[in-house]
């Protein structure tokens, strides 16, 4: 008797429907953490390198070009992650929505990046704000509270940049007198703020999601 010919009663039908829907939902969730870890760690590592490079006065073109490692490593890593996915995971409407959100925010970031250069606006502030917003939306779509809260934290913490600039403007002269050589290290510490925001916004929820997916796979 084949699988197809087995007699079904109503209760067994309900059992099959519930099981298949529940199992498929579990698989939809399973890989979300990897992308956040990739982008989060890339941003944190490049930011820390940038901070050291700026404070140690490394050659300017090298410092500036290093920022482009974030989209380069993140973009290539995302392609590799998607291709190397060993499980044939089903594609859901949630996947499509999340892809659309990040594509729109990615494009917006490109526009904002150009505008920020032209208008001399703070790229770090705008990046943290935009990525925070995209993380909140992703968290809401996936119904991951941790991700949504991490994104909200990112949006709120992005306010640290204008506040930091205000503080430097108010206390710059006094700081220069008291700190002397270490004044530049204080000024460039906004890059450290940027790295901390990405740890809170992407690295920590990325690990939580990744551990959860490992737990689900082992269950």
């Amino acid at each position: 008797m084949t699988h197809d010919e087995k007699q079904l009663d109503e209760h067994r039908s309900i059992e099959i429907i519930s099981k298949m829907i529940a199992d498929t939902s579990a698989h939809i969730d399973s890989e979300s953490g990897k992308h956040f870890l990739l982008w989060g760690y890339t941003t944190v590592i490049v930011s820390l390198f940038e901070y050291v490079a700026q404070v140690c006065h490394l050659p300017m073109p090298l410092c500036l070009w290093a920022w482009f490692l974030i989209p380069a490593v993140g973009g290539i890593g995302t392609i590799i992650l998607n291709r190397c996915s060993t499980t044939s995971r089903p594609k859901s409407y949630v996947d499509r929505s999340i892809s659309a959100v990040w594509m729109v925010f990615g494009l917006s970031f490109g526009m904002v990046f150009i505008a920020a250069i032209v208008y001399h606006a703070s790229i770090l502030f705008l990046t943290a704000l935009l990525m925070g917003m995209a993380t909140v939306i992703t968290g809401k779509i996936c119904r991951h509270k941790v991700l949504a809260w991490a994104g909200k934290a990112g949006v709120i913490l992005s306010l640290a940049f204008p506040l930091f600039h205000l503080w430097i403007r108010e206390n710059g002269a006094a700081l220069r007198d008291s700190c002397g050589d270490c004044f530049e290290a204080v000024v460039y510490s906004e890059i450290i703020i940027f790295a901390v925001i990405f740890i809170i916004m992407m690295v920590i929820p990325g690990h939580i999601l990744h551990n959860r997916s490992k737990h689900l796979k082992n269950a």
Partner: peptide, 28 residues
């Protein structure tokens, strides 16, 4: 009203698409 066909449709109802390997693994 057949075990395997109902399982296939139940998988596909919640997703945009699923491949043959995934459906085979899930349904056994």
């Amino acid at each position: 009203h057949s075990e395997l066909r109902l399982a296939i449709v139940s998988i596909l109802i919640g997703v945009e698409e699923a491949d043959f390997v995934y459906i085979r693994t899930e349904t056994g």
